[in-house]
């Protein structure tokens, strides 16, 4: 069964790109969220196998959202979507419970490699 993914990013552009990457890797994107608040809600709703989380977002940052998601479900797999220059933020997110991270600009194979590794599919 295809792994279920929640995609969180405030840019539709990024969400679409990530969704396409997951689709190409045989994943099922079950939901998407445009900010941290929505991310926590959608996580509760969908209980995804994996969540990709942008860091800089309106209303609630990806780090806060990750912290809340991990609080809800400590086994949640949250992958941070980061850019170069956000190293300290990513470390903060790892402290908050993020499982791994990917670095923008994304390349499909890099993203899938990280995700599959995290999900123990390699």
């Amino acid at each position: 069964m295809a792994k279920r993914v929640l995609v969180v990013d405030d840019a539709i552009f990024m969400r679409n790109m990530i969704k396409d990457i997951f689709a190409s890797g045989g994943f099922e994107v079950v939901g998407e969220a445009a900010n941290g608040l929505e991310a926590v809600e959608k996580f509760k709703e969908f209980k995804p196998d994996l969540t990709t989380m942008d860091i800089v977002m309106p209303f609630k940052s990806g780090i806060e959202a990750t912290r809340e998601i991990i609080k809800q479900d400590s086994s949640a797999v949250v992958i941070m979507c980061s850019a170069l220059g956000q190293e300290s933020l990513v470390m903060e997110a790892i402290e908050a419970g993020a499982s791994d991270f990917i670095v923008k600009p994304f390349r499909a194979e890099d993203v899938l490699a990280v995700v599959k590794k995290v999900l123990g599919e390699v």
Partner: peptide, 21 residues
């Protein structure tokens, strides 16, 4: 190990209705 999980309450309702471009 790390602290036991609290049943988290997600704070607010997000986003509203679904839109497409």
């Amino acid at each position: 190990a790390a602290a036991a999980p609290d049943s988290a309450r997600a704070s607010a309702e997000a986003g509203g209705s679904r839109t497409v471009r």
